[in-house]
Structure formats: C-alpha cells, structure tokens
Design a protein around this nucleic acid. Structure first.
Lengths: 144, 144
DNA sequence: GGGATTCTTGACATAATTAGTCAGCTTAGT
DNA sequence: ACTAAGCTGACTAATTATGTCAAGAATCCC
C-alpha cells in the first residue's frame, strides 16, 4: 500500500506549479528548489506529465512548464494515474483474466472495494481544492 | 498502491483456514494445495500470522494451524497489518517527523484521507463476512 | 523408542522496482 | 553564436518482493 516518490513528488510539483499561476512558464529548477526535490529527477517526472497532457512545455530561455488545464479541471486521480498507473491494489481488479481464480475469488471483492474508495478520494479532489486549502492554511498561520 | 503477495496470500489462506472450521488443525500443505500457493512460502507467512497471535499452531503428525479467534473477531485490517505493515500510503501519515515539510504539507492531507478510507474497508470487514459471501456465492452458482 | 510428520528458524537467491544520475541532444531567445 | 531551458535514453545502486533451502524441534503412532 505504498505510493512511490514518483506520485508524491508529482503531486507536490503540480500543486506548486498551480500556485505559481502566472502566464509565464515555471522552470523545473525553481519547482525542484522550492519542493526540495532533485531537479534531474523532476525533469523525468514532468516528462510523464507532459506525455499524458497534464502540462505543456516551452523550451529555451524563459521556458518551463505550465498546466495544460485550469487547476479545477485537474483531478488528483489523473496525476496519480500518470505516475503510478492503476490505483488497483492488485492486478486482478483491472483484469479478471490475470488470475484463474479471480472469477470465484471472494478476497478479490475486497481489492475491488479498496480501489473504489481510493478512486473516490483521488477522483473527487482537484488541484484547485488543494490550492484553496493552501490559502486557508496560510490565513490560519499568519493570523494568530 | 500495491498489495504484495504476502498480504494477498495471507488473506486467502486465512479465509481458507476459516472455512475448514473443524476442531482439528489444518496443515499448511493442504491450504497451499487448495490455494495454489507455494507451501514453503506459505509457511513463512503463517509464521508472521502466529507471531501476531492470529493463528495457533500444533506440531507433529495431524498438526497444523487453527484460528486463534472466531472468524467474526478477525478483521481484515489485522491480517493486512501483520503482513504489510501500516496501511499508510506514505510514511509521513504515521509519523509527521519523518519529513520536515509534513506539518504544512497540504498533499499530506490526501494521504491521510487515503489511509482513512482504506482502513475503513479493511477494519469493517471480518473473516466471517467473507465466509458468508463464499456461502452465498456457492448457492448462486449451484442453483440454476 | 524410532520413524514419520508437521511446524520453526534463519539464511540464501533471484528478479523486479525504486530512486535517482548522467551525457548528450534539441529548441528557442538575445 | 551563445546560453538557457527542456528532451531522451541509458545507466546504476539500493531496496523490496518472492520465493527456496537446510537444519532443527516438537509431536504422534506403532
């Protein structure tokens, strides 16, 4: 039941990118500095995010990445899908034929249920939701 | 978001054991044959299950394993905890101090939520629940 | 008591995955 | 041209996953 650094870093990076919010692209190096993530590694992660169409890139000086859609339209499930693949905890959830026992396997129902509830969490939350929480958190901590 | 064979096999083995239901112990070899799991590997898994007190063992001829508690009192979360450790998808969920950013990290809230919903699934289901589903499934497939 | 049977323990082995790193390339702005 | 960015694919070290193996200890049956 682990989410690898790929998924975790990608989510942090996407939220960071969303918070920059300018029209001009944000450099990987800036995100990597703020988030304390290796920039070489982050490049690799952004490459995946680009392939699935979650971000757009601009090359050359003053280049970088921008979100391909408004934050409210980017579900966390999309990011996680891109980085970690299916949210199914076991392969047979997505493909019954991968196990000869799957059809009558009662334990499989538990894994199906697990996928369902995690998908609900990730699918019902967008980057925009996280941005709001960041803003709220800043109000809380600055006030006092 | 993967559950390893340890957790999956252990759950199947525990359900199998529950379904044997006799007073006499069930041999690992019999479970491994029915479940098509390597018996050498399964022994190793039962060793863990015994350490956490979910099963009891009897050595010698006619020996084997029995459930340490009635199936209705064995939550799937106990089995999974024994085999996979914490259900937290990220370490910072259980221990804030493992990451210097955890206190103000908004993405962490998602991982906390993920752990919560998966715990609800695994914590609210017992072996007895699965046994009932097995019985129901058998009725369905035999009838007709 | 001897042998067979079953669990017990710890070490070992192999493969896959994770978490990066690196070198060299392409593109674009000045 | 030069430099600053992203792009690509190969490489590596460490860890985890998935077993296997060997030797032992307890127990039962004859």
């Amino acid at each position: 039941m682990n989410i690898s650094t790929r998924g975790r870093y990608a989510l942090r990076a996407m939220l960071d990118l969303a918070l920059q919010a300018g029209d001009s692209p944000t450099m990987v190096k800036d995100i990597s500095r703020r988030q304390e993530i290796s920039d070489l590694y982050l490049e690799q992660l952004f490459s995946r995010l680009k392939i699935v169409g979650l971000v757009r890139s601009t090359r050359g000086p003053r280049g970088g990445f921008t979100l391909a859609k408004p934050p409210a339209q980017i579900r966390l499930s999309e990011i996680m899908q891109a980085m970690e693949g299916s949210s199914a905890p076991v392969a047979c959830v997505d493909n019954v034929h991968c196990c000869s026992r799957a059809e009558f396997c009662i334990t499989r129902r538990i894994w199906v249920e697990m996928k369902k509830v995690t998908d609900e969490v990730l699918g019902s939350t967008t980057l925009k939701d996280l941005m709001i929480q960041v803003a709220e958190h800043e109000v809380e901590t600055s006030g006092a």
